[in-house]
């Protein structure tokens, strides 16, 4: 499929090498990771997911995003083009910065998951006032 480029999602491998008991495909959502002064912002393209079903976990510096996506393809219909598959999303990141896990927040709108990972107090940049004599 050489004509499709990075606008489209890519299939994911088995999550963390484990085999699954459920059939179906996994997809790796396209992500932006932005570091700001006080937080790390993760944006993930996850069209077709449902906000309340998205599972975000942060454990030992590993951020895992998982969202089940029900198959919405029509079984009876005749497909003229079938260029992408529909399936669950899964992606894991190793977050090296110290993050205040208790303050992680997430929102989902227009098919995009936004995660705010606030930096832990100890690693926030601090402006040191220089005392002048």
């Amino acid at each position: 499929m050489p004509l499709q480029s990075e606008i489209n999602k890519k299939p994911a491998d088995h999550p963390e090498g484990a085999e699954r008991t459920r059939s179906g495909q996994f997809f790796r959502p396209n992500c932006d990771i932005v570091e700001r002064e006080d937080e790390i912002l993760v944006l993930a393209d996850m069209p077709g997911a449902r906000g309340e079903q998205i599972d975000v976990r942060f454990e030992d510096g590993m951020l895992t995003i998982h969202a089940p996506v029900p198959d919405r393809r029509e079984p009876e219909a005749e497909y003229l083009l079938c260029e992408y598959g529909v399936g669950d999303y899964w992606r894991t990141f190793q977050v090296s910065e110290a993050v205040d896990a208790s303050k992680i927040s997430a929102e989902y709108a227009n098919g995009v998951l936004t995660l705010h990972l606030p930096k832990a107090e100890s690693v926030k940049p601090r402006r040191i006032a220089v005392a002048t004599a």
């Binding site: 029509e74 219909a77 497909y79 003229l80 992408y84 227009n110 098919g111 995009v112």
Partner: peptide
């Protein structure tokens, strides 16, 4: 201008044609 074409699923039913695209992040 862009970086590729969005993928489309297109299917036919008795009385209609349906095109579906994944377009996250737009309104």
């Amino acid at each position: 201008e862009g970086r590729g074409q969005p993928a489309v699923n297109l299917w036919e039913q008795a009385d209609a044609l349906t095109a579906e695209l994944e377009v996250p992040g737009v309104n």
